[in-house]
Amino acid sequence: MPIKLSVLDLSPIPSGHTATDALANSVDLAGQAERLGYHRYWLAEHHSTAMLACSAPELLICRIAAVTATLRVGSGGVMLPNHSPLKVAENFRVLESMFPGRIDLGLGRAPGTDPVTASALRRGAPDDFLQQLADLVGYLKDAMPADHPHARVRATPVGTPCPPIWILGSSTYGAQVAAANGFGFAYAHHIVPENVHAAMRIYRENFRASAFNQEPRAILAVSAICAPDAGEAERLAATADLAMMRTRSGKVRLPLPTVEEALAYRYEPAEESLRQYNRTRIHIGSPDMLRDELGELARQTQADELVVTSMIHSHAARVRSYALLAEALGG
């Protein structure tokens, strides 16, 4: 059966290129994804890394939505503890006003960076995700409790519908929050594959119908690299191997490596362990292989949709990967 497919874009900065190039690649990929029949295009939030240009998803959402017509465009996600709930509400009310019915608000609890950078972003603000979430919903729905200290504050522009809210998570905690509030849930299999079955089950079993959704809506975020044959896919995946090892080792001052640089790298034993772990959360292969792998994973987890991220150095190869996946899985 065809699977609904979407894109999760981290706007990688390839070695030898600039952030301007990376963002132009994101715009081009969005247009290609729309033509290929992808359903939504989500932009991530990461900070203090030379590998990614996605520090401001709200701005990228506006740019992508402006050059597309049918894609839903949103955040995958806004890391809510880094921001004022009022400012997030106003950003997304403006986006929803500009692109009615096409905006998604995906929310995460992690900082999307290291602890020092997170401290600089938050400037000592308390980390209370549930209260921030409640405040955000209050602003978006014009339903702030009367006894709230900011009850008289209105997120502007007023009268704008609330965009769909999705909770992103890589644990059962996010699944519980999404279920309790009747939000959509997107599980980050590309970050922590181990909890996927428990989280997706907990979300569906505990879902409470709400004004946001009458039924559970579950997305599975996966990392995939697809090429015409398995050998070429493995070659392209060398970039993702080295990039992820560097990220988990704190080596964030380097851009996305070329395939040649990655193949020439010699891993120390501890680094090789990180590389091997990365292979548990990335799907690599030909279209037939990934049709079977990802199709089975979607079936097992009861995912309504797959949102795919691909860390490939060559923009042309990344576009081709998405095209092959659309042909194999999208029907």
Rank of each mutant, 00 (worst) to 15 (best):
301 T>N: 04
1 M>V: 14
272 E>V: 03
275 R>T: 08
84 S>F: 01
44 A>H: 04
280 T>Y: 09
19 A>N: 10
51 M>W: 09
170 S>F: 06
319 V>C: 14
186 A>C: 15
165 I>V: 13
279 R>P: 04
200 M>V: 10
176 Q>A: 07
331 G>P: 00
57 P>E: 08
174 G>E: 13
193 P>N: 06
322 Y>H: 15
237 A>W: 10
270 A>Y: 05
303 A>K: 06
316 A>N: 15
120 A>H: 10
293 E>D: 15
35 R>Q: 15
37 G>C: 10
312 I>A: 12
76 G>H: 06
25 N>P: 04
240 A>V: 06
5 L>C: 14
42 W>E: 11
305 E>R: 06
148 H>W: 04
199 A>Y: 04
140 L>N: 04
43 L>I: 15
214 Q>K: 11
196 V>Y: 05
80 L>D: 13
185 F>G: 06
300 Q>P: 00
171 S>R: 08
169 G>P: 11
252 V>E: 09
51 M>S: 15
9 D>R: 08
34 E>P: 10
176 Q>H: 11
54 C>N: 13
187 Y>M: 11
269 P>R: 00
281 R>S: 05
39 H>C: 03
34 E>K: 11
294 L>P: 14
37 G>P: 07
244 M>H: 14
321 S>I: 07
50 A>D: 14
277 Y>K: 06
166 W>A: 05
150 H>Q: 13
